[in-house]
Design a binder for these strands. Structure first.
Length: 798
DNA sequence: CTAGGGTTAG
């Protein structure tokens, strides 16, 4: 008995119910036929793929391949996203009904086969079948996936001509298409070519709309209408369906209505205000709107930077008696994340809890992000732990949250945990984690990640490539950084900035300047950070005039108001070249000078041994930042350098009284995929004795060549002899010593230090580089020092 | 037919 084979209680009930109603009709039928008819009349009652196949089998057995029944099965297969089964059926159908086409198109779309979906739609039109409102959502989704606005516009034209633009689902799909594609295309000067449609399909090409007749403020919506007008002039391969001609008339009125709004009749000054996205136009025209309509238009506005509009619409939703759901909320949360508005974030979190969708994965990822952006990594991590299921986005949010808050080791640990959880890292994962390697100078990890990126084929992604450029530059491999930069297909402003900053850090100012020029020639507009990079490059190379020029251009030509970093770079530069008075006046002209800006000038005073200016600067500095320890150290060094021991001592006593302790200096070096870290006077390393022996031999030779230890920066009040031994046990020297004994002659040594290199070590390393005939690269907290043949790339100013 | 995460910073 088939009923028992199908084994579905609800179906039995349905059959019984129908049997009651149509008892006469059913009397002639076999029980198998009854079941088949019941299921075909109620396709949604088929609950599993297995049942669908059983039904198919029964039809073959009892109905002799009745095409209507087979089409119904095809539709059911397509509901279950069974592509192969659907295709097999579709291919044996000789005459394909509207339902058959709709089913196969939907199936292609659900499998991401967008091109096949769209070309089937065209074939369907060619074969004389009229599309109905069920087919457009799928076709439009495919246009969206193909990123082809033109195709979407053409389809929209079709929809208008068939009078289907008032359909709810079609309208929703249209808004989604426009929200994803219109902004994308507006930002491109040349519109992306429409996807080429497979050659096998012999029909006119869609998407050949020429925009020359349209004003610059016309939108895709207008183009769709224009397309329809043109189509009306071309003899169509398919004759118009007479039942919908009155609708076409009506559409004509709407075309004119829109034409009036956006055909450039308003003054061009108002163009940006007048411009209304096609998405919003569709939304306004919709006769009925459901929750999905609101969510789509809110998300669209939020993603296109129209924050006010998006938030207003959330309020308007309430007037339409619709409650924000998890979709609404996770569309607007990124707005508050951008403003790091933890208050609004908590409010929404509370709303989600009250409406019991707080365990939603999308909401969870957004909440992790917003807590992390408000530096509440602990709260973010608690939320992350509470998620019952974690996808790549929730992992990425958590990893990025750690890295952006300086928790690099935690970020790396989570990245490994993600891999262990069998979640594939994508380009977002890599661009989130690579900065951790850049900050930590852990090149071996960076290289492993780079290898994985190449294996996944993600190396062309601009975000990933930019982070790699930065990572290699920060690990001292400026040439590799440049290679990756040159290999990039699309360079955005961030890629250029990363490369320029790389050159700046390495003191290659002229490379930085020429790149900045090239960037502008290629039409990439520099932003705040790009100017930080170029000013830093000038500052590290003493290019005063160029820096002042860039500073002025930034303010006047680009309308960027200078920030702390810009002031600091220029002040640093003026100080560096000895124009201390100018620097002083420049900083005084700032809206609110900070301790860090003043202390760059203090460093300039140290280099140029100007004590009066140093005291003036220090006075200003301690007014705004009395706890700036670096400034105390600098000032004390300045006094010591001028042999004003008494004043130097006073400063040190003041530091002591304030309970200030120097940040422990630490240097590290990578050796055979392992990081070896050293602090001053550190004897814990297993090779300590060998390192010490090597450094002693070197010290003797250095002194023969004229090295005199500069003990003026030793803050401890101890005997001169002890001071000298303290100097030679500084962390960078231990790390360099370890590098020398662990690598073959001639190998470049790369060391990273967490604070500024001291004056004496800087001199010492210059001697060492000459004696051992090696390049020694030291990265301190602000830049790279390339020591080679007794000289340093920083020109002794840092 | 609708939603979340990413690169540059004296």
């Amino acid at each position: 008995m088939i009923l028992t084979t199908l084994r579905q209680q609800t179906i039995c009930l349905l059959v019984e119910e129908l049997y009651e109603k149509n008892a006469d009709d059913f009397r002639q039928m076999s029980s198998a036929q009854i079941v088949v008819k019941t299921l075909l009349d109620n396709p949604s009652s088929v609950r599993s793929k297995f049942q669908a196949k059983q039904l198919h089998a029964q039809i073959i057995k009892h109905e002799k391949n009745n095409p209507i029944h087979l089409t119904a099965v095809l539709s059911i297969y397509s509901n279950f996203e069974l592509l192969h089964e659907s295709l097999n059926l579709f291919n044996i159908l000789h005459s394909r009904s509207s339902l058959a086409w709709k089913s196969i198109i939907r199936c292609y779309t659900s499998h991401g086969l967008s091109l096949l979906s769209v070309s089937s739609f065209i074939q369907m039109r060619v074969s004389g079948i009229y599309p109905d409102h069920n087919v457009f959502p799928s076709v439009l989704k495919s246009c969206t996936l193909l990123k082809s606005l033109r195709l979407g516009e053409s389809i929209h034209g079709c929809i208008i001509r068939l009078g289907l633009d008032f359909d709810l689902y079609t309208g929703n799909a249209l808004m989604n298409m426009y929200s994803k594609l219109e902004d994308l295309h507006r930002n491109c000067e040349t519109r992306i070519q429409p996807a080429t449609v497979s050659d096998e399909i012999p029909q006119r090409k869609l998407g050949n709309v020429c925009r020359t007749n349209l004003s610059s403020t016309s939108t895709s919506y207008d183009v769709a209408h224009e397309f329809e007008r043109r189509m009306a002039g071309i003899s169509p391969t398919v004759s118009l369906n007479p039942t919908i001609s009155h609708k076409t008339q009506y559409v004509g009125e709407i075309v004119d209505q829109f034409g009036g709004i956006s055909r450039g009749e308003m003054p061009s000054r108002e163009a940006s205000k007048v411009f209304q996205s096609s998405m919003n136009k569709v939304f306004e025209m919709m006769p009925t709107r459901d929750l999905v309509s609101w969510n789509t238009v809110i998300a669209g506005n939020a993603q296109n930077g129209m924050y006010e509009e998006a938030l207003t619409m959330v309020r308007d939703m309430g007037n339409a008696n619709l409650k924000p759901d998890s979709f609404t909320v996770s569309s607007v949360l990124p707005i508050f994340a951008e403003y790091a508005d933890i208050g609004k974030g908590r409010e929404i979190h509370g709303y989600a809890i009250r409406h019991s969708f707080d365990s939603d994965l999308y909401l969870g990822s957004s909440m992790i992000d917003i807590y992390a952006k408000c530096t509440r990594v602990d709260a973010a991590y608690r939320l992350f732990c509470l998620l019952s299921y974690r996808d790549s986005v929730s992992w990425n949010s958590m990893i990025a949250g750690c890295v952006q808050n300086g928790l690099f080791d935690d970020g790396l640990r989570l990245f490994r945990e993600m891999l262990a959880a069998k979640v594939q890292p994508g380009y977002v994962s890599f661009s989130s984690i690579i900065p951790a390697c850049a900050y930590l100078t852990t090149l071996h990890l960076g290289k492993q990640l780079h290898a994985q990126i190449l294996r996944c084929g993600l190396d062309k992604n601009a975000f990933v490539a930019s982070s790699l450029v930065d990572m290699y530059a920060k690990c001292g491999y400026i040439k590799i950084a440049r290679c990756i930069f040159d290999e990039m297909e699309l360079r955005d402003m961030v890629s250029w900035t990363a490369m320029i900053m790389g050159y700046a850090l390495h003191g290659h100012a002229h490379d930085a300047l020429s790149l900045f020029q090239k960037m502008k020639i290629e039409g990439v507009k520099p932003n705040y950070v790009a100017f930080v990079a170029i000013l830093t490059a000038c500052s590290h190379a003493g290019l005063v005039d160029e820096a002042q020029d860039y500073f002025d251009k930034m303010v006047h030509d680009y309308g960027i108001s200078p920030g702390l970093e810009h002031y600091a770079a220029v002040a640093d530069l003026l100080g560096r070249v000895g124009r201390l008075k100018e620097a002083y006046d420049f900083i005084s002209s700032m809206p609110a000078p900070t301790g860090s800006v003043w202390s760059t000038l203090l460093a300039g005073c140290r280099v140029h041994k100007n004590i009066e200016m140093a005291e003036k600067v220090a006075e200003q500095l301690f007014k705004v930042d009395p706890e700036n320890m670096g400034a105390y150290v600098l000032l004390s060094n300045i006094y010591s350098g001028a042999k004003r021991w008494r004043d130097a001592a006073k400063v040190r006593i003041a530091m002591k009284n304030k309970g200030m302790k120097k940040k422990p200096a630490c240097s590290w070096i990578e050796m055979k995929k392992k990081v070896h870290a050293f602090v001053a006077g550190d004897k814990s390393h297993p090779d300590y004795d060998r390192i010490n022996d090597a450094l002693e031999v070197l010290l003797e030779q250095m002194e023969r060549e004229g090295y005199v230890p500069d003990t003026s920066e030793v803050l401890h009040d101890v005997e001169e002899e002890l001071k000298r031994s303290l100097l030679s046990s500084h962390s960078e020297r231990l790390a360099i010593g370890f590098g020398l004994i662990s690598t073959p002659p001639g190998t470049t040594i790369r060391v990273t230090k967490n604070i500024r290199v001291c004056t004496d070590c800087h001199t010492a390393v210059k001697f060492i580089s000459k004696i051992v005939g090696r390049e020694i690269i030291v990265r301190d907290n602000s830049r790279f020092h390339h020591f080679r043949d007794g000289k340093c790339s920083c020109g002794d100013y840092w």
